[in-house]
Design a protein around this nucleic acid. Structure first.
Lengths: 162, 162
DNA sequence: CAAAGTGCATAAAAGATTCATATAAAATAG
DNA sequence: CTATTTTATATGAATCTTTTATGCACTTTG
C-alpha cells in the first residue's frame, strides 16, 4: 500500500507540526547574542566575505543597523573588515577564526539539542523521521530560496511596541 | 524490510535537518512585534490568564520587562489587566478578543508558509512527512517539556552586543 | 499586631534598531 | 575630461527593549 497519494490536507497538518516545532525552538535559542548577529555570522560562514549592504539585506535589517552590528562583532573579535581593492567604497566583512569557531559551537549545540530530543522517540518514530530526511532537507532548501521575494514592500510596518 | 532499527547516527542527521529548518524559520518570522511579545500572547492563548511574574518566568525575561511589555500590549488593546480578588497584590493578564485574533492570524500565517513549502515537495516526500507526523508531534511535546530545567542559572550572560 | 516575604510598578541606564542625512568613491553624461 | 548621478558606508537623533535597583502595597507568620 505504499505510494498512495498523500491526503489532501497533509500539507496543512505537516505545516502545523513544523510551525509548532519552529516556534518552540525559538524560545530555546541561546540569548548570549542577538538573533541577527548569530544569523549574520552563520551567513558569513556559509557564503564567505560579504559587504555590509549584502548582509543587511540578507538578514532583513537596515544598513546602518548592520554597520553597528558589524562594529560590535569586530570589537568582539568575531569578524574582520577589509577594504575591497576593486571598489574602495565597500567594506568586506569576513569571519575570523574565533567567529567561525563560535558558529560551529553554536550550531553543534543546536543540533545536539534536537538529537537528544530525537533519542526520546520510539524506534518507529525515529525510523519514520529518517525516512523523511530527504523531505526535510528539500524543505530547508525551499525555505532558503523562499526569502527571494519579488521585491515590493520592504518590510511590514510595526504594529505595537517591540 | 520495514521496522529495521534506525541507523545509529539517525538522531544526529535528523537533528541537523531540524536545526537547519528552525534557524531558517527564525529569519522569516514577522517583525511587526517583538518575539517576546508574540510569545507572551501565545502563552496567554494556550494557558489562559496569568500573573505578571508567571509570564516573565515563562518567557525568560525579568519581571519589570514583562510589566512594561504588558503595558504596551494593553495600550494596543491586545491584553487586559484584572486584579485577582483572592490576592490583591497580583495583576492577572488576559487576552482580549483582538489579542486572540492576532495570535490566530499570526499562527495561521506561519502554518500556511510551511504548508506552501510542503506543496513544493514531491508526492513521495509529502507521504514520508505525513508518515512521520506522529514523530514530529511527539518531538514538539518533548521540546515543550525540555524547558522545565532543574532551575539554576536563570539565563546565560550575554556575550556581545544584542 | 509586628516582622518578614511576595507581587508589581517605577526609575535610571545600557543596547539595539530605525530613519534621515552626510561623506566618499565610482560610474556615467556631456 | 569635468560635472552629475549613483552607490556604499558611516553618523546622529529618536525610539524601543531590557536590565538592575528600589519602593510600595498586600499577605503571611510568629
Amino acid at each position: 500500500m505504499s505510494h498512495q497519494d498523500p491526503a489532501p490536507d497533509a500539507p496543512a497538518a505537516i505545516g502545523s507540526a513544523l510551525y509548532g516545532l519552529a516556534t518552540r525552538a525559538v524560545r530555546r535559542l541561546p540569548r548570549d547574542m542577538s538573533l541577527t548577529s548569530a544569523a549574520t555570522l552563520a551567513t558569513l560562514d556559509k557564503t564567505g566575505p560579504r559587504r555590509i549592504t549584502d548582509l543587511a539585506a540578507a538578514e532583513g535589517v537596515t544598513q546602518p543597523a548592520m554597520t553597528v552590528l558589524v562594529r560590535g562583532m569586530e570589537e568582539s573579535g568575531l569578524v574582520e573588515r577589509t577594504g575591497d581593492p576593486s571598489d574602495r567604497r565597500v567594506t568586506l566583512v569576513c569571519l575570523t577564526e574565533a567567529g567561525a569557531s563560535y558558529v560551529r559551537t553554536r550550531r553543534q549545540a543546536g543540533v545536539d539539542a534536537y538529537a537528544r530530543l530525537v533519542e526520546g522517540l520510539t524506534d518507529d518514530e525515529v525510523e519514520a523521521l529518517a525516512a523523511a530526511l530527504p523531505a526535510l532537507l528539500h524543505l530547508a532548501e525551499l525555505e532558503s530560496h523562499a526569502g527571494a521575494e519579488p521585491e515590493q514592500s520592504p518590510r511590514p510596518k510595526r504594529r505595537t511596541s517591540r
